[in-house]
Design a protein around this nucleic acid. Structure first.
Length: 272
DNA sequence: ATCCGATGTCAAT
DNA sequence: TTGACCTCGGATC
């Protein structure tokens, strides 16, 4: 379940588990065998998260870059280590402390040069979890875009770490029509949207879940604790409307047509 | 047993 | 704009 909050939790967790230790590195699935052999037994110095990217810095200067993509998963075990599955691309392990992490299905698992790590970070927009004071940078990048704000929020060069669930929830909570051109947002709207992203991602990083509705208990699995994401056809939690879904930027967008109306636009389902 | 979609990204058209 | 890639769990036969 990888949006930015998940990645930041992994960075923290893996730093606690492995940083400052010699780490056994392997690739049961085989596609990272060369890199694993190079890292095996080295000391991990630190782990950092930028947007949805993880960077592991090793003694000697190697950098391991991991991106989970859509289906990637990193499972961390603190005791009773299981055998990795045949699809496990990467295993990090400290047998002495009975700790391991198993990576499956990543979009990226590769060794990169330190300067490539810098370039990677340079092409990402501000990360609400790493740079909460970067509201002005975010607003400046929105201002140059004519595309719908719902599409622009998925562009990692505009803001790093936001994915399909958070874009929908943040636009609902901000009362913004996803189809509005990003550059048409007022400075106040852009600042409010940034604050909302900081709050939502921050809560996600604390809890590990995308729960955006405070009044629904996190333990209540009957209804997803969200306002609009994956709630197409269900009643809006704030009005009598029905949540709609349509493709935007190659993904499914979700919104309440009456709570998120563009100024001057006709009410109702005006989505293309 | 099989199918399908998923909180993502990139290359090819 | 579409397809490919990666894995897994839940829905469906």
């Amino acid at each position: 379940m990888p949006e930015g909050h998940t990645i930041h939790r992994l960075a923290r967790s893996h730093a606690q588990a492995f940083a400052g230790r010699r780490v056994a590195v392997s690739s049961p699935q085989g596609r990272f065998s060369g890199g694993a052999a190079r890292l095996d037994g080295k000391v991990l110095e630190d782990v950092q998260a930028f947007g949805k990217h993880l960077l592991y810095r090793w003694a000697g200067g190697d950098v391991l870059h991991v991106h989970l993509g859509l289906v990637g998963a990193f499972r961390t075990y603190w005791q009773d280590l299981p055998e990795p599955s045949a699809q496990t691309r990467l295993v990090l392990a400290c047998p002495a402390t009975d700790t391991a992490a198993h990576l499956t299905g990543p979009l990226a698992c590769e060794l990169i040069a330190p300067e490539e790590a810098g370039a990677l970070r340079a092409r990402l927009g501000p990360d609400p979890l790493a740079e909460p004071d970067a509201s002005d940078v975010f607003a400046a990048r929105l201002a140059r875009r004519r595309s719908p704000i719902g599409q622009v929020l998925l562009d990692q060069a505009v803001v790093a770490g936001v994915g399909n669930a958070y874009r929908a929830e943040a636009l609902f909570l901000s009362g913004l029509d996803p189809q509005r051109p990003a550059g048409d947002l007022t400075p106040g709207e852009a600042a409010g949207l940034w604050q909302t992203l900081c709050r939502l991602l921050g809560e996600g990083a604390r809890t590990g879940r995308i729960h955006t509705v405070a009044t629904i208990a996190p333990a209540d699995d009957a209804e997803p604790a969200r306002y609009v994401y994956a709630r197409e056809g269900s009643p809006c939690r704030r009005c009598a409307g029905t949540i709609e879904s349509w493709p935007l930027g190659g993904r499914a967008m979700y919104a309440c047509p009456s709570c998120q109306v563009r100024p001057g636009a006709a009410r109702g389902s005006a989505h293309p």
